[in-house]
């Protein structure tokens, strides 16, 4: 079973990101689960969400304590080492940061990938909305979901938001995936 933990801040779409992973994995024929862990309900507060992917039905409801993959939507959260809880030398890190990024704390793993999600988001949306963008990098580096299934998930999840938004999100995901 693959366990993914996403860290971000209130308003960054942390919960939606986990849901998109689950929808995409399910679309690829896997079993999947996603759930949020809200802190206080306000914009800017640190928030976590979780996703699990497996070949069998997922029945556990515990929070993700030992993630195989850690997605960090806001690199400023790395100023506090709590965020690394349960990670080890095998954990795959995907961080929203430029290529030359140096983490302020020591990461336990060498499998660290930077995704220029903010840069891509500013270019395409004109806003720092990175939750879908960073999933393009997640799909590329984890191999757990395909680009196609991720696009499907975005189209399904954002169906109410209209075609333009879906199109822009897919474009941003593709840029991150091909980065």
């Amino acid at each position: 079973m693959e366990q993914i933990r996403i860290h971000g801040r209130g308003g960054q779409g942390v919960v939606t990101a986990a849901e998109l992973i689950a929808i995409a994995a399910f679309k690829s024929g896997k079993y999947a689960q996603a759930f949020p862990n809200f802190g206080v309900e306000r914009s800017g507060a640190p928030i976590q969400s979780y996703a699990r992917i497996a070949d069998e039905q997922i029945i556990t409801r515990e929070q993700v304590h030992n993630p195989n993959i850690l997605i960090i939507q806001d690199a400023s959260l790395l100023e506090n080492s709590d965020i690394l809880k349960g990670t080890d030398k095998n954990t795959l890190f995907i961080i929203n940061a430029p290529d030359n990024y140096q983490a302020p704390i020591k990461l336990p793993s060498k499998k660290v990938f930077c995704s220029p999600a903010t840069e891509i988001a500013l270019k395409i949306f004109g806003k720092n909305i990175v939750n879908t963008v960073i999933l393009g990098s997640f799909a590329k580096h984890s191999g757990l979901i395909t680009l196609e299934s991720l696009k499907y998930a975005v189209a399904e999840k954002f169906a109410d938001k209209g075609k333009t938004i879906i199109k822009k999100n897919i474009q941003a995901i593709e840029v991150a995936f091909n980065d």
């Binding site: 986990a18 689950a22 929808i23 399910f26 079993y31 999947a32 689960q33 949020p36 039905q57 409801r61």
Partner: peptide
């Protein structure tokens, strides 16, 4: 139904 654990989770 358990709040958040079931109401806010995604599964098949």
């Amino acid at each position: 139904v358990d709040g958040f654990i079931l109401t806010h989770s995604y599964e098949p």
